[in-house]
Design a protein around this nucleic acid. Structure first.
Lengths: 211, 211
DNA sequence: TAGATTGTTAATCGATTAACAATC
DNA sequence: TAGATTGTTAATCGATTAACAATC
């Protein structure tokens, strides 16, 4: 399963949930393809590889698809706990964002090195000093962290996350983090979101349009 | 030039600037490859396609590379003006972010529909009511906007941006925007950043490791 | 010179697409 | 039945990699 396919599957999942909430029960490969911005052949091929089958001539059952894709995406009834490391403006903005809940993701805590930040009590989730990272991570079984620290603190903070047993990181710092295998040969999953880079790419594409 | 290649070129550009600031003058394909997380063959192939040449045995001249890649990326002495549409927590956090300047990107204004937001005067850049969008866009020659509005306002806001002549959008809303050709057949450049989706992908990859 | 690196060609790899039999 | 859609196979396409001559 390659990375593009994972992106498509998460897309399918969201689209199907919308279609269900509209009251639909069946979907054809080409409908889903249009909504996801891919070809119908890709949709059928993806489902075929995932061993998800529809009815010839009848399309796919939406509830069945949602269940099957949800299982593949690891959806459970229990929300998945995450933490935010670095509670500057961006970190705190994410704390207030309520778009994670429908996806079963819950921010349970923030961490910061600045006492002025972690001693305040006005946040939607508690903010702790970095020294309590390991304790909170293990007691709440946290696997994934969002990293929103300043550029200069990125590698140190990342190292502390790895030491605390974090397995996945969504990194908003402009420094691209690379997965390094730990003692057991396991690599963390890292996604880097670089906003300045995205903007640069947009400017580039405007300068040299594809067609 | 495909999309992966654009990403690589922006990476090379940043790495080269760091190497220069460290005082280096020459770089070999395999050094750059290591730093960018790709193979040396890819680096040479990319440069070859861009008609950028080094010295056999001597590697590539860093200053020359920076100049050549900068030209390709459309770098000029003048910063490129952008706006932020939707000045909630995330939009305002981006306004305060100072990591755009080194890349020649300048946020010149924010826009919001809420008078309580746009009448305040405590922001690093002015915030205007949406009604002044066209005026500011045309007077400051703005091509690109960051969209940080709530989900429910996404499509409306996007439509207004298109009408105002915006050509590129960095969309943080969970609704994936798709480029639609305008009357002249030109398609806007859209990058969608979906934080919940990134987290979901991380959880998925943790559940089914690649190796 | 011997060794190292570039630049390019050809081979490999993998993903997407086209085509179509199966079947409802 | 005729028409529509699935599921799969084979063809196509494009990107990456391997290999190596050129050359400093």
């Amino acid at each position: 399963m390659n990375h593009d396919m994972i992106i498509r599957i998460t897309r399918y999942y969201r689209i199907l949930n919308r279609l269900r909430s509209l009251g639909l029960e069946k979907v054809f490969a080409h409908n889903l393809a249009d909504a996801a911005g891919v070809s119908a052949a890709i949709v059928r091929k993806d489902f075929s590889l995932l061993e998800i089958y529809g009815q010839k001539r009848g399309g796919y059952d939406i509830l069945f698809l949602i269940a099957a894709l949800g299982k593949i995406l690891g959806k459970t009834d229990e929300p998945q706990n995450i933490i935010i490391v670095g509670c500057g403006r961006i970190g705190r903005a994410l704390m207030h964002y309520n778009g994670f809940e429908p996806d079963g993701i819950r921010i349970i805590a923030g961490f910061d090195t600045d006492p002025l930040v972690y001693s305040e009590n006005v946040h939607p989730v508690p903010i702790y000093p970095m020294s309590r990272l390991e304790e909170v991570v293990s007691s709440h079984q946290v696997d994934v962290a969002i990293l929103t620290v300043p550029e200069s603190a990125t590698s140190d903070s990342f190292q502390r996350l790895m030491n605390a047993g974090i397995k996945g990181v969504l990194n908003f710092s402009p420094i691209t983090l690379k997965p390094v295998a730990d003692a057991e040969g396991l690599k963390p999953v890292i996604h880097n979101v670089n906003i300045a880079l995205e903007l640069e790419q947009i400017f580039y594409e405007l300068q040299f349009p594809k067609t």
